[in-house]
Write a protein that binds this DNA or RNA. Structure first.
Lengths: 137, 137
DNA sequence: CTTGACTTCGTAGTATACTACTGATATTAT
DNA sequence: ATAATATCAGTAGTATACTACGAAGTCAAG
């Protein structure tokens, strides 16, 4: 079939990780077991690639591999479990909104620092970034 | 003096970490060496507390301890180094803006999922969160 | 002035997330 | 057909960030 076009080395290169990492993700069930042509080499498709790119970025954003697994498993499988999924998704949403908020605060302080930095002297003593914490209260 | 009011156990409790973590941060120079009354127990003040709270949250936001160290050291020490500080701060700012952007995308998809989740059936096959990657291009 | 909780330092152990290595087998290019 | 390159499974090792432990010293209440 045409869609299984990447070998492990190829897809891991595109996704910016190495082959061992991909095997590791398979081992911990963060990635599904890929197709094997004649039961040998692993072959991957576009959906696998999207998933890997998502994992990489989510990791950079501070989610653990377990949290990423949860995010990726969020979907409505039947009306029976729909409430649970909604609940979990709402929980994740709150968490993400708080993250955005805190990053905005850090951004504000950094911007201020950059603007002050037209090379007037400011205090050596105080660390400006600590204002972030104050602005939260 | 009045301002050195926290012992290690007290401040670590308020900051939501344990005493060993604080000693660890001191060891890797993420926290400064605290005052010692009669050269024994460590004593901390409000600035130390703000710093610890910042560290904790920055960690949750996906910054490594080294990155946090860099953020905390951002300040204008003299007009000589001002350019460097500005450069580094601008770099960090870009990084943070990208993080906010990506989190907004995740937020959008999660909100959509929650809204769909008024218990109509949607596809079992597709993982909605993968749309995040698509919406980035 | 004792008793019990807290702190000291150093070192060893743990969890997460890889990363490297080995020797065998498979695929691909010439 | 054969040489170069890729992949295989399994296991051991590494980096980061803690976390636990032990034995001795310190402090504060009754």
């Amino acid at each position: 079939m045409e869609q299984y076009k990447y070998k492990v080395g190829e897809i891991s290169k595109i996704a910016g990780m190495n082959t061992e990492t991909l095997r590791y993700y398979e081992m911990i069930k963060l990635m599904p077991k890929p197709k094997r042509k004649e039961s040998h080499y692993r072959y991957y498709d576009e959906i696998d690639l999207r998933r890997l790119l998502f994992i990489r970025r989510a990791k950079e954003l501070g989610f653990t591999l377990n949290e990423i697994k949860e995010l990726l498993n969020l979907r409505i499988e039947s009306s029976a479990t729909c409430g649970d999924v909604k609940h979990l998704a709402e929980h994740k949403l709150k968490d993400i909104e708080k993250r955005i908020d805190d990053l905005m605060n850090i951004k504000k302080v950094l911007s201020k620092l950059i603007n002050q930095c037209v090379c007037e002297e400011i205090s050596t003593e105080e660390c400006p970034i600590l204002e972030v914490i104050d602005s939260q209260n």
